[in-house]
Design a protein around this nucleic acid. Structure first.
Lengths: 208, 208, 208, 208
DNA sequence: TATGAATGAGTATTCATTCAT
DNA sequence: GATGAATGAATACTCATTCAT
């Protein structure tokens, strides 16, 4: 097996296990047993347990960054309707989290109680989301699309909290598997809640 | 020292330490050193480390329940303006979390990666909040105050996620201590974001 | 309650518990709970846990010594038939052990694995029995009642081992309660096994 | 070092230490120090302290079973003299216990006061011996070699108790090392005590 | 590169004993 | 004498990490 493939194998096992049991309750023993490798082998690819976890997170975050930049790329900021843009952002986010439930679990729920810099890595993720939203809202204000008197920092937090927690609620491992989420409809429903309070232009429901 | 007082002493130390370091990184040794008691003493009051943690959480949750029921008590549901009621609820929640930053830290951030039933206890807390919001929204719909086509479950999640995550962001230990939050203004700002998307009646800013 | 009465109360509880669980698995907590006294009270009567256990044993051993000397007292060594004497000894021993099953349990089974001098105390008990038997057998040899070529030390050990282990087997707590032992018959049966190999005079069954 | 060898090393240390100090007073620390291994290593071979002890006992018991079956194998039950057979059994038993004084100590003395199923394991050992003797005696009765009126269960207990306790007395660690036992002579002496009371045929001393 | 036996610092928990009230 | 809250030394067991093969 090629080294890269083996590294991926380890990360796949680690992801599944960390997602279910969290950082502390997942042992190196569990990971190597699940990956079918020897105890020493994991240390050929990762310097320690924390490295495995952080690699997983950073991989996830860079995927997210990529997903965001792609989102930016395929939209022409000049002409786009602000609510459409907002809609696009929210949908992208939901789509992203829905793609990998294990990572959703890890990224949105673990945080405090982790050793060293790991909690920081996670915190940075949320801050990045919030800063992005702040940027969006500030832009919207200068464009006249967003209410001048909006509390931007707070609203960014509300949106981030609402989105992340909702993502966890609907997409995480433990979520009710019986009713899968219609992301298009959910996006529209979220817009319907937030848009009237954020934008200056009266909100119109998207025709389906 | 009276037994009850000593138990409180231990819980106070545990709260501070769990809040900063989380469950796993907080050792029994840390707690007893902080509380200035002997190693065995903590086991006179709690059966084990988990018991200390869960006691802390349950205490917090029952405080929250009480705070909620008080909130219900001092409002006349017949005559109250729905936005006013919403405003009241949100403010209560923010006030509650702002009162104890350590518990805010513990309750809102810890979750996955905890042993046994502890994660469950926390999960139940959030579910309780969401169910409460669902009840409010359903009532609003039958009153005609809330949009008929609102996705109630989703909106309850958005609100819960937005509120809890915002509470953590502004009130937790790590929050920027330099700019303390004006809860009245924050409440109003939150209403300004959510009200237009939820209520049927046009939202009017509260005069201060 | 009078001090002596309370000491007896503690010993009674300790006896029952040590008999069931042995020395190590019986906690001071168990004893005080069973005796219905406070934690500190037991230390008014005994210097420590070991003292409770040893007191129990020594009480038992002195009872046994007394039982032995009584046995000696009511027999006229001159005229008595040697098999009768042997019979008497064996019966006395069996009767003694059968009287207190808890102490039987403690004295015959516990031994190794006890701290300090406790194992010694128990060992001395057995040695005392053996020395007594050696005395009896030596006397019998000089009387001509016992085979000249008998290996006295070994035979004393056989007798002690046989008697003690049989006592435990039939009288201890765990013994089959369904078939209570007829001590007279058992004594006769033991004599029937040992007498022919020990005495010079042909053994005759006792008429009942 | 090969794994099997290391496991044996640990058992050897454990045997010596348990034999001297018993179960409770022997610490894991003592065993690893004696075996010259690291703290964690013992847990690679045994799941816990109890497992080490039980492994030791079960090893001993299976050795004993093997020794017994060998004893049965090299004797022709048809033609053998019953006293010879008895002699053989007794000698085998004595030889067995004399071979490993530490295990002799552990198996014959420990019993009550052990946690979990450990006491049971030991109890089963004795019961096995007794059942074997009962079988022998029943066979002897149907052959006409053994007295018809012998109390078989009791006699088996007497023999087991006599033998085990004598084995401990003469072979255990604490036994008087000054006078080593002549097993042939001891066997003969034991036979001389028991044979006349058990067998129908007059007992004749073995010519040496 | 892969292995897995060996390592040992780290930690929760127990329980006999003390002593102020 | 009686109490029971407080004590802290003692101890089994864990688990990430190493390193010789």
């Amino acid at each position: 097996m090629k080294p890269e493939a083996r590294k991926k194998l380890i990360l796949a096992s680690a992801k599944r296990l960390f997602s279910r049991g969290g950082y502390y309750q997942t042992q190196i023993s569990d990971i190597i047993k699940d990956a079918g490798i020897a105890r020493g082998t994991i240390y050929q690819y990762f310097s320690n347990k924390e490295d495995v976890f952080v690699t997983l997170l950073e991989q996830y975050y860079s995927q997210w960054e990529e997903s965001i930049s792609l989102a930016a790329a395929d939209i022409n900021l000049e002409n786009v309707d602000p609510v459409d843009y907002f809609r696009h952002r929210i949908k992208r986010t939901l789509v992203f989290f829905s793609k990998d439930k294990d990572l959703c679990n890890i990224a949105l729920r673990v945080g405090l109680g982790l050793p060293g810099d790991m909690a920081l890595v996670i915190k940075r993720f949320e801050e990045r989301i919030i800063r992005l939203l702040i940027g969006d809202l500030d832009l919207g204000i200068s464009n006249g699309h967003v209410r001048q008197d909006l509390n931007v920092e707070l609203t960014a937090n509300l949106l981030a909290g609402a989105l992340l927690s909702t993502a966890y609620h609907f997409f995480s491992q433990d979520a009710d598997q019986a009713k899968p989420l219609d992301i298009n409809k959910t996006t529209e429903d979220i817009i319907a809640v937030f848009a009237p309070g954020i934008f200056t232009k009266p909100y119109k429901k998207q025709s389906e």
